Simulated assay, not measured.
Amino acid sequence: MSAPDPRDRGGPGTPLLSVRGLVKHFGQKAGFLSKGGAIVRAVDGVDFDIAKGETLGIVGESGCGKSTTARLIMRIIRPDAGAILFDGEEVGSAALGLAAFRRQAQMVFQDSYASLNPRLTALDTIAFGPRIQGLGARAARAQAQDLLHRVGIDPIRFAGRYPHELSGGQRQRVNIARALALSPRLLILDEAVSALDKSVEAQVLNLLLDLKDEFGLTYMFISHDLHTVRLICDRVMVMYLGKVAEVGAAESIFETPRHPYTEALLASMPSMDPDRRTEEAPLSGDPPNPIDPPPGCRFHPRCRAAAAPCSRIEPALHAVGGAHRAACHLADPASGHPQSAAA
């Protein structure tokens, strides 16, 4: 068990990251076949918390806003609205400037090669951040060698190699080591293992679990692989078309999903059991256009349980037991849906 972090301002009960009303709309430029002026609602009012020491998994179809949410949190993209609180302080405020926040929150991207500078060796890549922060060259290189060893790379053999001389798994380990070089508290992993083959993926996942315990880290884990999410995540947040559809403990989400979209996602998980063959597609059609999302519940055009309220009233996240919440009229006894608990 890791010792309490001296940087902890709010105590163990305070969420490390709190996101409230996060919004990002992208404007569409005029082109040969378009008039312009249309708005893509990539992230449209997202609220969630990540407790200290937990792993929150974020899942959903491509285009649902997972990666955009991560980039908004890191301020790679500037949000249009919303508040991001880190350990009780608003990111970008006088109390917690952006540079100070980024020393405590780091991100690992999906493309391990594009994430690295091709002109820097593995050792120099990891030492770069600490040197910028004022650590001496010798100390930064010593720290980089130690981190290479901790992520399972032999510094003697690989410290002087460039990204093109490393395998995909080795490059991602270098990215993880670089993220750890500034001693962060939060690690955002955006499809960090999805580009790796399965044997290497398993090794990197085990590494992430070990590092989490060793360094007392908190993870925000974005993935399309539901099996992986179930394996390593404490809680799961399901996103659909820029909104949160459901959030709760991982076992609660996987065993008793309360949103039809979550049920469809889980039904699409591959199974090795020959008796659990998929005879019918769990979900048909493509997600609606984020430029002009449907009124009411954004999932209702594809939902088999859709009723009159679904096309008129946007559902709020409703408690369905403990910390499990679902944005579905089926979960709200007062929604007027004929199949809700009150019907």
Rank of each mutant, 00 (worst) to 15 (best):
R150Y: 03
G65I: 01
P288C: 07
V204T: 04
D8M: 15
L231Q: 15
C64Q: 01
T256M: 06
P295K: 00
A342K: 12
P270A: 11
P333S: 05
F299T: 05
L265F: 07
H300Q: 08
Y261F: 02
K29M: 14
F32S: 14
C64N: 01
T69H: 04
N289W: 10
G216Q: 02
V229R: 02
V229A: 08
K52S: 09
H318F: 13
F158M: 09
G21Y: 04
D234P: 02
P338Q: 07
P155K: 06
P4L: 15
I188K: 02
I73D: 06
L33A: 12
L17C: 02
D197H: 11
V108C: 06
R185V: 07
Y240I: 01
G37D: 12
T121W: 12
S194I: 13
F254G: 03
D8K: 12
V174E: 11
P257C: 07
E279V: 12
L166N: 01
P294W: 04
T125G: 08
D8E: 15
T218H: 05
P315A: 02
L16I: 15
L148Y: 04
A179K: 05
S199K: 10
L189K: 09
F101Q: 00
A179D: 04
D190W: 01
D47F: 04
G31W: 15
Q106N: 02
D190C: 03
A331F: 08
G21V: 07
S2G: 12
R103I: 01
L205H: 09
P163H: 05
D49S: 14
M237N: 02
G88D: 04
F221R: 01
R258K: 15
A70Y: 02
R102C: 08
S194C: 13
A306H: 01
S268A: 15
A267F: 11
E165Q: 15
V238C: 07
G322M: 10
A202D: 11
M107D: 10
A70D: 00
K29V: 14
H227S: 15
L209E: 13
L266V: 13
Q145Y: 11
L17K: 00
G63L: 07
G134N: 04
D234K: 06
D80C: 03
S311A: 13
P270K: 11
T262Y: 00
G129S: 14
A179L: 09
R325S: 11
A249V: 05
G296Q: 03
P184D: 09
G82C: 13
P338N: 07
I132D: 03
D332K: 00
A70T: 00
Q104P: 04
T125E: 08
A326M: 14
I126W: 06
F26A: 07
L283V: 14
P155D: 13
A249W: 00
P155C: 13
Q143D: 12
F254H: 05
G82W: 10
L241R: 08
A105H: 08
S93P: 05
L208P: 09
A3P: 14
I73L: 12
A326C: 15
